[in-house]
Design a binder for these strands. Structure first.
Length: 492
RNA sequence: GCACCGGUGGCGAAGUGGCUAACGCGCAGGUCUGCAAAACCUGUAUACGCGGGUUCGACCCCCGCCCGGUGCUCCA
């Protein structure tokens, strides 16, 4: 099944297939590790995750590279303020970022590339640009890209720069540039700042050059897909194209994917608005990692997503329905055989969900057939018409769905536990939601003992004592479920 | 200002030039239960921003307007 994916460069849906017939080579812009990742960051990484998982599921191999920007103005500023090296400053944030990805079940790319470990590659590229007449050095030792050397500039973001006059907005500290829109390739060292001594002088890389250098290092001069948040389209990606193609004269990336920004409570997320959330903030409030994942992927990546707590609750409940159903299939007893209607329903659900994803990763549409199948199967179970062969067929559809969505398999306890641990270390115990504390306040054994006592009380028809125990547990976030097979309990 | 995206039932969110406009959440009723909860089933609201136009026929195409959002070299 071929993925039809919107291509910013062509402005239409294009087939996404490996140009070499082997693996799809993709580069996705990663984080600048100067702070903890927020949900907006993760929406983008989750969208790319859905893409790669769909490709893998449908039999396309993937070679996925993601950069870690571990040197830039903010990092230098913050590290200097803290009196430590930039490496010492960024390391914990990089680690936190990778932990957050794991919590959200974002698959790790085949290759992570740190900017600071690829300085020679960047220098080499700048030298080539200089040789081609597309780069020049200013008096202070910085290097700039000469926009005039790349007539196609603007082809990605569809900007027509011809009408823009030079000199209209010249920053005071950039007076040396030939043209106001020329952008920095290499920034000359300033006293006290981190810098590298190289053939093009002492300094540090500009922001854009790292992606060009590292993408070419791992994927070649021309590759299949480049992805990132919509904000990166201009100028970052436009600049990457200019830098790369001025040297190689080949198409840098054939396909460009941009993920729409999200809103929080209907407004742009920002610290000053007070609607800025990191993943850790949400975990500490008691929301499950799976719910956050579901909420962030349920709206197709090109649509604006309005992130709300109501939305998280909805996602939580929707996942619960799927998990309960899955358990019902796995634990029930079903007679041998197959029900043709259910076999057909399973087949249709599988086909429909994949078809929806293949259409520009329409995750919202992809959910529908799965829920249709859940209802049909539940009805059949109630009527005794679901057979063992149907159970197997339906479980395999759920497994396939989970290869992409990955929300049914429950591994929510670990990220929450880690977040609490982190909060304690970071002196943020106060941010841990009380119900999370309650959930962990009783051991499994203690709960089992209370449940047993309640069962005994019920048998003796001492319902007031039984209800009392149930209420006490409920206050601590322990939910009891009576069934004919005994009592089940779970932490809310 | 220029450019782009969106406005679908209580909420979220698909989709289509004409058949009953998905799905999820919520809500209501039922089954079950000592009662609940949970789970499941059923039902639910006669939803396509406004005004024109094209068409045999538009929520879907075109024009205008209103509203919301975003971008225009910090930003996933």
């Amino acid at each position: 099944m071929t993925l039809r994916l919107f291509n910013t460069l062509s402005g239409q849906l294009d087939d996404l297939v490996p140009s070499d017939g082997k693996a799809l080579r993709m580069y996705a812009c990663g984080p600048t590790v100067y702070d903890f990742g927020h949900i907006g960051n993760f929406r983008t990484f989750l969208a790319v995750d859905i893409l790669r998982r769909f490709l893998l599921l449908t039999g396309t191999k993937v070679r996925h590279v993601m950069n870690i920007t571990d040197v830039d103005d903010k990092i230098i500023r913050n590290a200097t303020a803290a009196g430590i090296s930039i490496g010492a400053y960024t390391a914990p944030f990089e680690l936190a970022f990778l932990e957050d990805l794991e919590a959200l079940k974002v698959q790790r790319p085949e290759q992570l590339a740190r900017a600071t470990e690829h300085i020679p590659k960047m220098v080499e590229l700048i030298q080539k640009l200089a040789a081609a007449g597309a780069a020049y050095q200013t008096e202070d030792g910085s290097w700039y890209f000469r926009l005039a050397a790349f007539p196609e500039y603007g082809k990605l973001s569809k900007k027509d720069l011809s009408g823009m006059e030079d000199g209209a907005r010249v920053d005071v500290d950039e007076y040396e540039k030939d043209s106001a829109r020329d952008f920095a390739l290499w920034k000359a060292a300033k006293p006290g700042e981190t810098s590298w001594d190289t053939a093009i002088g002492r300094g540090r890389p500009g922001w854009h050059i790292e992606c060009s250098a590292m993408a070419m290092e791992y994927l070649g001069e021309s590759f299949d897909l480049h992805a990132g948040g919509e904000d990166l389209m201009f100028p970052h990606h436009e600049n990457e194209i200019a830098q790369s193609e001025s040297v190689t004269h080949k198409t840098f990336a054939r396909h460009w994917m941009h993920v729409r920004f999200l809103l929080v409570d209907g407004r742009k997320m920002s610290k000053s608005e007070g609607n800025f959330y990191t993943l850790r903030d949400l975990l500490l409030k008691g929301y499950k990692a799976s719910a956050i994942r579901m909420a962030l992927i349920s709206v197709p990546y090109r649509h604006q997503l309005n992130f709300t707590f109501d939305g998280l609750i909805e996602a939580t409940n929707a996942i619960e329905r799927l998990r309960t159903f899955s358990q019902r299939l796995k634990t029930g007893n079903y007679a041998p055989g197959e029900n043709p209607a259910l076999q057909e329903a399973a087949k249709k659900a599988q086909a429909d969900y994949l078809a929806a994803l293949s259409n520009d990763l329409n995750t919202a549409e992809a959910r529908a057939p799965i829920f249709d199948l859940v209802r049909a199967a539940n009805t059949a179970i109630d009527q005794g018409q679901l057979l063992a062969g149907d159970r197997d067929a339906i479980l395999s559809v759920l497994a396939s769905f989970d290869k992409v969505f990955d929300v049914i398999q429950d591994s929510d306890a670990e990220p929450t536990r880690k977040a609490i641990e982190w909060a304690v270390q970071a002196g943020r115990e106060a941010d841990v939601a009380p119900e999370l504390v309650g959930r962990e306040s009783l051991t499994d054994e203690a709960i089992d003992a209370l449940v047993a006592e309640r069962t005994l009380a019920k048998r003796q028809r001492n319902f007031s004592r039984a209800d009392q125990i149930r209420n006490e547990l409920a206050e601590k976030g322990i939910i009891l479920e009576d069934s004919k097979d005994g009592v089940r309990w779970k932490r809310k």
